[in-house]
């Protein structure tokens, strides 16, 4: 499962993309994925407003995931 990171999520995790390896527990839903990332990167928990896209489509916490999916983590950005 490939995870693209944008905005502050990229800064927190320190890279623009992550590969979730097969050995790691594969999250079944977007909600589970958020928990998994929060456990690994506690600062991620402080983000209250994040959009998630699965295969380039906006997804909700209940959206189901497959190991072949490409996820994007899209925090709001405000600069102008």
């Amino acid at each position: 499962m490939k995870i693209l990171l944008f905005g502050i999520a990229k800064d927190i995790i320190g890279t623009s993309s992550l590969l979730l390896k097969e050995a790691e527990k594969n999250p079944k839903t977007v909600g589970e994925l958020k928990k998994l990332i929060s456990n690994k990167y506690p600062k991620f928990k402080t983000l209250s407003s994040i959009a998630i896209a699965v295969n380039s489509c906006y997804a909700e916490d209940k959206t189901k995931l497959q190991s072949s999916d490409e996820i994007a983590i899209i925090p709001p950005v405000s600069g102008g």
Partner: peptide, 15 residues
């Protein structure tokens, strides 16, 4: 529809 509610002010730095 993209971001239903604003983040807290300390979450996201500005320019």
């Amino acid at each position: 529809c993209l971001f239903p509610n604003p983040p807290k002010s300390e979450e996201i730095p500005n320019c």
